[in-house]
């Protein structure tokens, strides 16, 4: 764990060295390393030359540049603050509206006139025949857990087969799956619906799990990309020791793929929370207690209901965002590690 952290910050530092600073400022690392998170300092023995060079150049510039660096630093931080504000204003609106005593949209005030927790209590504790947030949450959670487990397993299986094994037709299958993934999903929806209906899985949560996970094998690119970066020698070694592919899959590859598995689990888990098009078609009985959060929230904002529901919609949106934000922040590191070695190396 500790090791990972070190490399992480270290690498981050190196990225900055990759780029010329916009204001032509050069290194002034002394100031920065003081602020850098713990673990930024260790010098890698592998790159002594680099260090020396940097230090030497720093020495040349540091005096004249320090002042400029400070100005640059202020500029950049201000710019970032502005950008972050821009990104967060709508979210802030979501948050404050969720606490608004006016159940509809306010067109004239950003902050509500009166504050209240009523929207949350309505959403969480006072279900009526249409608004059953608790049920929706539970439904979505169940669907998310199962579809996440199945699709993660599928993706790992496909990735391993394509990345670590060589067999006739492999290239063809890879190409074919790339092409298959391009068909607009919105269009095939209606056919999927009738296929599911003929096996009796519409209006059922099992059906939703199937819909979200069955086709997931196509999404193997990122994970395969990650597995591609794991040296063949690791598998060879296991093979020499007499392990079969199944054992290599579980004992060698799975532990090595931890970051990408975590990434995959979280992103598969998130999908059912925001799909409303497919869900609305599949769960079409109109019975509110069968819905997922996304359908429910979407229906709350039906044109005629927006006066009564906008604040509750915001409250509902906020409630699901909390666990998702937490997951996201946990995932950030894995996302960065996993995605980049994966998505980029298709």
């Amino acid at each position: 764990m500790m090791d990972e952290k070190n490399t992480n910050t270290d690498e981050l530092k190196e990225i900055s060295e990759l780029f010329p600073d916009t204001d032509k400022e050069t290194e002034e690392n002394n100031a920065q390393s003081a602020f850098a998170p713990a673990g930024a300092a260790p010098i890698k023995t592998a790159e002594p030359t680099n260090r020396k060079m940097t230090v030497a150049r720093e020495a040349e510039h540091s005096l004249g540049m320090k002042k400029k660096g400070l100005i640059g630093s202020i500029c950049k931080n201000t710019l970032l603050a502005l950008l972050a504000a821009f990104w967060l204003i709508p979210i802030l609106w979501l948050v404050v509206t969720a606490f608004s005593a006016n159940p509809g949209i306010s067109y004239t005030r950003f902050f509500p006139e009166k504050w209240t927790l009523a929207n949350f209590s309505r959403v969480l504790f006072h279900p009526d025949s249409v608004l059953q947030y608790g049920r929706w949450f539970l439904n979505t959670l169940i669907i998310a857990i199962f579809s996440c487990a199945i699709s993660t397993a599928f993706i790992l299986m496909v990735s391993y087969a394509f990345s670590c094994m060589r067999f006739p037709g492999r290239q063809g299958m890879i190409r074919f799956s790339l092409i298959l993934g391009m068909f607009p999903g919105v269009l095939s929806m209606i056919a999927v619906y009738f296929i599911m209906k003929s096996i009796g899985l519409t209006n059922s949560h099992i059906g939703m799990i199937v819909v979200y996970s069955a086709g997931s094998g196509l999404g193997y690119l990122i994970v395969k990309g990650f597995m591609d970066t794991i040296p063949v020698s690791m598998r060879e070694a296991a093979r020499i020791e007499g392990a079969n592919e199944l054992q290599i899959f579980f004992r060698v590859m799975m532990p090595l793929c931890k970051p990408i598995i975590v990434y995959q689990i979280i992103s598969a888990f998130l999908a059912p929370w925001s799909d409303f098009v497919f869900a609305r078609l599949m769960l079409n009985s109109g019975i509110s207690k069968d819905w997922t959060v996304a359908i429910g929230l979407y229906n709350m904002l039906d044109k005629t209901l927006i006066h009564q529901n906008f604040a509750a919609f915001c409250a509902g949106g906020l409630i699901i965002s909390i666990p998702i934000s937490v997951l996201f922040i946990i995932m950030q590191k894995y996302y960065v590690e996993g995605v980049t070695s994966g998505s980029t190396k298709g």
Partner: peptide, 8 residues
Amino acid sequence: AIAVPQFV
């Protein structure tokens, strides 16, 4: 900003 589901 992306932790809130996109449709919301």
